[in-house]
Simulated assay, not measured.
Amino acid sequence: MRIGLTGGIATGKSTVSRLLAAKGIHLVDADVIAREVMNPGQPLLRQVAERFGAEFLLADGGLDRRRMAEHIFNRPEERQALNEIVHPAIRAEIRRQVQEAEGTDSSNIVVADIPLLYESGLEGLYDEVIVVYVPRDLQLERLKVRDGLTDEQAEGRLNAQLDIEEKKRKADIVIDNSGTLENTQDQVDALWKKWTES
């Protein structure tokens, strides 16, 4: 079974990923892939430097992610330019890893953790889509605390993604992560039981 896992920034998607992985579910993580394709010396990183400038590279040749985030989040045309460079490679690697995992055991549950799943139009590739949800006001507060952002910076990041309420409406499964870790664990346990007993 192929499952897409998504949510909004600071909704706790990584927590849910860890809880699912602890069940033995094969996890394909788009964020890990995105970091790997932007490692020093990678062709995509050279393309990014050519398009945006060497000032977006760190001394070790890696991408200055914080600087790039500041640059693109309130500039939709710049965000689009970055996405056009990196997203095709990320999507191809996600597809490869999912197919590889399915090839080892056709009964496997494979979860692809993709932050921008809906924004990228990839939901049709999955049997079910899980959205990790918290209300927007809590999402905003968690993001500000987690990343040390101002209200304006945090709003810019939230506005760069599809609204969390819209993601919730589109979801096949919603995991509400606005409570305790134990409450989230209970929801993951119930989901695991449903998958393994059906």
Rank of each mutant, 00 (worst) to 15 (best):
I85K: 07
N74F: 06
R67E: 01
A69G: 13
V86K: 06
R91T: 06
P88Y: 13
V86N: 08
Q99A: 11
I72T: 05
R75E: 10
P88A: 09
N83E: 15
E100L: 14
E84Y: 12
I85D: 14
Q97S: 07
F73N: 01
I72G: 04
I90G: 02
A81T: 11
I94M: 13
F73A: 02
A92V: 10
I94Q: 07
Q80E: 15
R79V: 05
V86L: 13
R91D: 11
I94E: 08
I90A: 03
R67C: 01
A81G: 07
H87D: 13
E93Y: 05
A81C: 09
R67D: 01
R95Y: 07
F73E: 00
H87P: 04
E100R: 13
A81R: 09
P88G: 07
Q97V: 10
I94P: 05
E93A: 08
L82I: 10
E70W: 00
Q99T: 06
Q97R: 14
I94W: 03
P76W: 00
R91M: 08
R95K: 12
E78P: 01
E84L: 15
I72R: 02
A92Q: 10
A92R: 09
L82T: 02
V98A: 02
Q97Y: 05
R79G: 09
A81V: 08
L82D: 05
E77W: 08
N83A: 11
A69L: 08
E100Y: 06
R75K: 15
R67K: 10
H71K: 02
F73P: 00
F73D: 00
N74A: 11
R67F: 00
Q99G: 00
V98M: 04
V86H: 09
R75W: 02
P88T: 12
E84N: 15
R96I: 06
V86A: 10
R96D: 10
E77D: 11
R75M: 06
P76Y: 00
Q80A: 14
Q97N: 07
E100S: 11
P88L: 13
E77N: 10
A81F: 09
E100M: 12
E70A: 03
E77R: 11
E93Q: 12
R95T: 03
Q97D: 12
I72F: 00
I94G: 01
E78W: 04
A89N: 11
R95C: 00
R79E: 15
R67A: 06
R67Y: 00
H71S: 06
I94V: 13
N83C: 11
I72M: 02
R67G: 01
P76V: 04
F73G: 00
A69V: 08
H87C: 05
I94C: 09
R91H: 08
R96N: 05
N74D: 12
H71A: 12
V86F: 12
A69E: 00
V98G: 02
Q80D: 15
R75N: 15
F73Q: 01
E70K: 02
P76T: 05
E100N: 08
E100K: 13
H87E: 14
P88D: 05
E77Q: 11
H87I: 14
A92I: 12
E77P: 03
A81P: 06
V86G: 07
F73L: 05
E77I: 10
P76I: 02
E70D: 09
R75I: 09
I72V: 15
I90K: 08
Q97F: 09
R91L: 09
E70P: 00
